[in-house]
Nucleic acid binder design. Sequence first.
DNA 1: ACCTGAACACCGTTCAAGT
DNA 2: ACCTGAACACCGTTCAAGT
Lengths: 223, 223
Amino acid sequence: MTPVPAAASSAPRRGRGRPSSPVLTADGITAGAVALLEERGQDGLTMAALARRLGVAPSALYNHVATKQDVLRAVQDDVNRGIDCSGFGRDPWEEALAAWARSYRDAYARHPALVPVMAVTPVGSAPHTVAMYERVSSGLLSAGWPPHLVTNVVVAVESFVLGSALDTQAPADIFDPGDLAATAPGVTTANAARPEGDTARAAFELGLAALLAGLRDLLASAS
Amino acid sequence: MTPVPAAASSAPRRGRGRPSSPVLTADGITAGAVALLEERGQDGLTMAALARRLGVAPSALYNHVATKQDVLRAVQDDVNRGIDCSGFGRDPWEEALAAWARSYRDAYARHPALVPVMAVTPVGSAPHTVAMYERVSSGLLSAGWPPHLVTNVVVAVESFVLGSALDTQAPADIFDPGDLAATAPGVTTANAARPEGDTARAAFELGLAALLAGLRDLLASAS
DNA sequence: ACCTGAACACCGTTCAAGT
DNA sequence: ACCTGAACACCGTTCAAGT
């Protein structure tokens, strides 16, 4: 995001008509939405809250965006801009893919509300998002992946990444069977043996390693 | 779900006080919510719509559930009840895991609104959910998986499954770079080479095969 | 105990009026 | 063109009153 003041000119403007210079810009709205999401969590982004932070009436936003979904799309493109796909075309594809997946997961772990948006929003007209997919796709192609498999590989990794991003939001006791412990000895055993710490990350790294190993085999047998 | 009439006694009751026999039950509320989700999609489930379908005032629901989140939790447990984990303890673990993952993905593809709920809701007091995890965990344990890895395997597969369930909601043209096609030759090449048909399923099957192959290697090297 | 109906504090969005 | 302020049709939830 190009830097934009977090909050607009402290006091709300009192004039009634068109301002002499525009108060809002598309980038300013996006930056405000990102900040709101970061500060207040996923329920914190409302059109009213966004307008207040920008020092305008909620209806003023609709001169710049058609819907709240538009705002989410712009935020998503901004988040994707921060994902590291620099390894493609430089490092071996397995390393590039692993670094991309980690960076991607971390970005959406910070913005879980965007996960369902990301899974469903067409890429067209989201420039950073298109740039990311281009880097990944062309990287896989030039690493020797057959063209007909490339998008499936991207989608499979992405599905795992987005699911893992959601998993970071799970409470620590999500697998505690509670009253039903007596009926769940296997769950209890597995939970007790699971090492403490960042369990979401451990599960992600295990899955990522498995997925990459399987993809390596698949490429070897496909070529 | 135990069978329950889809809509309650056609005409709304006119009496003002406590009914002679209860109009609502927890199971009836859950069944109504499932039906609403299935018929009207994820935005169709509102407390008002649910109440109307059950022939009561919205506030009546709050005698049986504390919040809408409660309703979602109950629906989730009902959905999990339908997931096939019968292979564990019967078939080789790879086959059982694959069948479970497919069934799990299909169930949540029908209920994408529950994906974020599932990722975050503690399992305690959701009997069918606990039963599912018990079957899976004990199946992996008796197949020789080290206890400290079992939950991570479950979470990794689940993350991939839930991400893949979200992906089924993506429009067919999600990767169409639109105006930006000129800047995205790799994406364009990969898209053009991707076979038509159920692309979400193809990506899921590719990822599942890779994940399973990687897990097989991991188990071999861990034991 | 379990319902109704009114009320509360919100949502996203529209639109006439103002400059 | 781009803002304000009032309005609309919703939300989820609370609560007094009724039987």
